[in-house]
Computed example of a mutant assay.
Amino acid sequence: MTPTETAIPDETAPQEKKRGWEPVIVAGGLVVAILAAFITGVLEILVTPLRAGDVVTIWRGDAIGSGSGPPIGLAILLAVVANYAIGWFAVSTTGKRWALAPPWALWTLMMLFAAGVRTNEGDYLISGDDWVALVMILVGSLSFAVYSYRMILRRIPRGPVPDQR
């Protein structure tokens, strides 16, 4: 090597190693996001009948919804925060925009299933007169949609970012 030549480090080796783990990271991130959507969806369905009087009755061992008082919209807040976080996690972990779709589809199908299927006793998991559950379904799906819309508006960086000095 002459004095004018500079040693160029071999940058392909770390890239090859990174590409080797990329499918594992994408699959793992997607599995975690889908499991999180399932677990939070079940939790949201269970919390929809929560009432103000349940704070006392749950400690006695009674079922959720057996207390008196107005309904508490905890499921709505949980759906908004959890679904937006799940969307962020799925996309940022995998690095793929399409990774938002599987948890969103699973959560939405779970809610539609809960609203349309009767139990053995003839009850619905989410009844038509439960405004907390209906608003939860609406804003839960909207939080995925808002994250998706924000991804669309975000500019995709192409190549190295120029120095802004």
Score class of each variant (00 low, 15 high):
residue 3 P to M: 04
residue 4 T to Y: 08
residue 4 T to S: 15
residue 8 I to S: 09
residue 8 I to C: 02
residue 8 I to K: 11
residue 11 E to Q: 13
residue 11 E to G: 05
residue 13 A to I: 09
residue 13 A to N: 06
residue 15 Q to E: 13
residue 15 Q to Y: 04
residue 16 E to G: 06
residue 18 K to G: 07
residue 21 W to H: 05
residue 22 E to D: 10
residue 23 P to L: 02
residue 23 P to A: 00
residue 23 P to C: 04
residue 24 V to E: 03
residue 30 L to K: 01
residue 34 I to M: 15
residue 34 I to R: 10
residue 35 L to E: 10
residue 36 A to C: 05
residue 36 A to M: 12
residue 42 V to E: 10
residue 46 L to G: 11
residue 48 T to E: 12
residue 49 P to C: 03
residue 49 P to S: 05
residue 49 P to I: 02
residue 53 G to V: 05
residue 54 D to W: 04
residue 57 T to C: 03
residue 58 I to Q: 06
residue 60 R to Q: 15
residue 60 R to P: 00
residue 60 R to G: 09
residue 63 A to Y: 09
residue 64 I to H: 01
residue 65 G to N: 06
residue 69 G to L: 10
residue 70 P to V: 14
residue 71 P to I: 08
residue 73 G to P: 14
residue 73 G to Y: 15
residue 77 L to G: 15
residue 79 A to Q: 12
residue 80 V to E: 07
residue 84 Y to N: 02
residue 85 A to W: 06
residue 85 A to M: 15
residue 86 I to N: 04
residue 88 W to L: 14
residue 91 V to W: 02
residue 92 S to Y: 11
residue 93 T to V: 10
residue 93 T to Y: 05
residue 95 G to Y: 00
residue 97 R to E: 04
residue 100 L to S: 08
residue 100 L to M: 08
residue 101 A to H: 02
residue 102 P to C: 08
residue 103 P to G: 04
residue 104 W to V: 14
residue 105 A to V: 15
residue 106 L to T: 11
residue 111 M to P: 06
residue 114 A to L: 06
residue 118 R to G: 11
residue 119 T to K: 14
residue 122 G to H: 01
residue 125 L to N: 06
residue 128 G to C: 03
residue 128 G to V: 09
residue 129 D to K: 11
residue 129 D to W: 08
residue 131 W to K: 11
residue 133 A to H: 11
residue 136 M to H: 04
residue 137 I to S: 00
residue 138 L to K: 01
residue 139 V to G: 01
residue 139 V to K: 00
residue 142 L to T: 02
residue 143 S to F: 08
residue 143 S to H: 05
residue 144 F to N: 09
residue 144 F to V: 06
residue 146 V to R: 03
residue 148 S to I: 01
residue 150 R to M: 14
residue 151 M to D: 08
residue 154 R to V: 03
residue 161 V to C: 03
residue 163 D to I: 11
residue 165 R to F: 03
